[in-house]
Design a protein around this nucleic acid. Structure first.
Lengths: 200, 200
DNA sequence: GCCTAATCTTTCCGCTGTCAACATCATGGA
DNA sequence: TCCATGATGTTGACAGCGGAAAGATTAGGC
């Protein structure tokens, strides 16, 4: 049994996991290449054989995040049939995902991977996640009196849940909202509030 | 005429301005203490006589940002009378401010000043800005059939405009939305879309 | 079984935030 | 008026960071 083999075996995977652990435990801003390498028990330059630079590591972590987000939203969608309620449930799931994985969520929307062109797989995962929300919006349109374009409705829906997510995990909507249950409850209310005020 | 006086005169002010310039020109993530000091024509340790650490500089820049935001929203509010339209206009102004000053907006919500307890003046400015939106929400409630709590309505309204702001400046809602006019138009549509879908 | 390429380490660079020690100067009390 | 003190600025140091270069080690195909 080799105590410390020269080659790691699956360092790429281990680095992504280490980044996730550090983000979860110490915050997304503390995810440095050197710290990640240290946590993975490897020299600080080893990551460069698996990622061209720091942003590529973040992109890999974010890519997994978008896949998890897609999965989480789709799982909730499967349990709700009526299209409008489905859309609402998808929105709540988006917020709950962010509150459950706040640091990974921050990495997913961090500035250094804003330009996804160097990371086609991240781009695909992000587009897929956006597609899930897009489909929920589109399918709900058949059941409503629609006066706005689909693009605007998608933007509005996404903005609402994304705004809730970021404000909540930044602590700006109160401490109660930072628990999954609190976040779910607040999102549900917030989403409903926009439709319950028809009388102007 | 002293070419370079040993004492700057108003270095604190100059450092804040330099940080703003660097953020605007090169991005919020490139605002480093040393770069700011360099831009202000001063040694790299000089800022420490005016700010205890880097986050305090950011806090000062953010503080000014929140004041500008309050001013911008209030200026628009003054030109609109009906409470609901006023609320909508305030929301559009919030988004337009973010799109007009994207890097400063990012600094205002950057992670390192998320805990405002060390910066009471930043906290006050942020609370004041939130108060402007809060008042617009509260005053509009009298003109509507209200079924949700004020707290939830505030959260929903804030989340919608904050989500629009962050998504737009991150380029996730398309390039057209990144101009002030495009942002205003999209925000108006998005805000209206939530009220025009009463028929479920 | 060996050669090549992949993987990992060591060493180096410039940049960053922060601190300590020192230099300069503005200002108010004797 | 002068000078001492505190405010403001500089220099130099340190550790941690992202990244490049060069050498060590090993896995895997021929």
């Amino acid at each position: 049994m080799p105590a410390k083999p020269y080659h790691h075996g699956n360092l790429r995977r281990a680095l992504i996991q280490a980044a996730l652990d550090i983000a979860r435990d110490q915050g997304a801003d503390r995810v440095s290449l050197r710290r990640v390498a240290r946590q993975a028990g490897v020299s600080h330059a080893a990551p460069y054989h698996h990622f061209p630079d720091r942003s590529a590591l973040i992109a890999a972590v974010a890519e997994e995040g978008f896949r998890s987000l897609s999965d989480a939203v789709q799982a909730v969608e499967r349990s709700v049939a009526p299209p409008l309620e489905r859309l609402h449930a998808a929105g709540v799931a988006y917020v709950v995902f962010a509150v459950t994985n706040p640091e990974q969520f921050r990495l997913m929307f961090s500035r250094e991977i804003a330009d996804t062109s160097p990371f086609p797989e991240l781009n695909a995962a992000a587009l897929a996640a956006r597609g899930v929300l897009e489909r929920a919006v589109a399918e709900s349109r058949a059941t409503r009196a629609v006066t706005t374009s689909e693009a605007v409705e998608l933007a509005a829906a996404w903005a609402l849940v994304h705004g809730l997510a970021t404000l909540i995990i930044d602590g700006q909507l109160g401490a109660e909202a930072m628990s999954p249950d609190g976040a779910a409850s607040l999102s549900r209310s917030a989403i409903n509030s926009f439709w319950s005020q028809a009388a102007q």
